[in-house]
């Protein structure tokens, strides 16, 4: 099948994300990349766990002083829901419903922005209220690096999905861009997977002590 071909509903294949060789390669390559990302985040998690609550003086804020259950809960719900909306987007992509896909992707982006907003608020709160900064202690460095790396992934994902949406807004779905949308949604789910561990290991375990 030609990737450039103009598609119709009837011709749309069952697995548009893997119907050309380029698409198959992209699909597999991206999964392998996620395998690598797993060890990348594992190294960051490991570093965080080794440096958790390692601060230079007794009056510095520790994990149990900092974290706040409601805010983490809001952020978690925003990101988890955005995962569902991107599943909806891919559902419509498979049904060749371009408009609906764009709507759900738009919702995903909005939820992602909301998540980033809570994170920015949270970081500035720690900096101003607790003097817990990137340079204040090893704990601070490790915390901001791990959570910040994840936040940077979210930001990158937002830019990625947005540019895909803008780029393809007028051209509709084709076998050339369907794999791109699919891979971006895989990336978005992976960000969610990482967040599940962040809220568990960093926030909830931090509050437990």
């Amino acid at each position: 099948m030609q990737a450039e071909e103009k598609m119709t509903y009837e011709k749309w294949p069952a697995a548009p994300e893997k119907s050309t060789l380029e698409a198959k390669n992209k699909f597999l390559g991206f999964w392998l990349f996620l395998g690598g990302e797993t060890t990348l985040f594992a190294s960051l998690f490991a570093t965080y766990l080794a440096l958790k609550d390692k601060v230079p003086s007794a009056d510095a804020a520790l994990a149990k002083d900092l974290f706040d259950l409601p805010l983490t809960f809001v952020a978690t719900m925003l990101l988890l829901t955005s995962s569902l909306t991107s599943v909806y987007a891919m559902y419509h992509m498979k049904n060749f419903a371009f408009k609906k896909m764009m709507v759900w992707l738009g919702l995903t982006v909005l939820l992602g922005l909301g998540f980033l907003g809570t994170e920015v608020y949270e970081f500035s709160h720690y900096v101003h209220t607790y003097k817990h900064t990137f340079t204040s202690s090893a704990f601070g460095s490790a915390f901001y690096t791990l959570v910040g790396f994840h936040g940077a992934h979210v930001a990158f994902g937002l830019c990625w999905i947005l540019s895909l949406m803008i780029r393809n807004s007028k051209r509709g779905l084709s076998l050339y861009n369907a794999p791109k949308f699919y891979v971006a949604s895989l990336y978005w789910h992976f960000i969610d997977v990482v967040w599940v561990f962040i809220f568990t290991v960093v926030y909830l375990m931090g509050m437990v002590g």
Partner: peptide, 8 residues
């Protein structure tokens, strides 16, 4: 301060 022992 990942490797700065004085800072944890």
């Amino acid at each position: 301060n990942f490797f700065e022992v004085a800072m944890g």
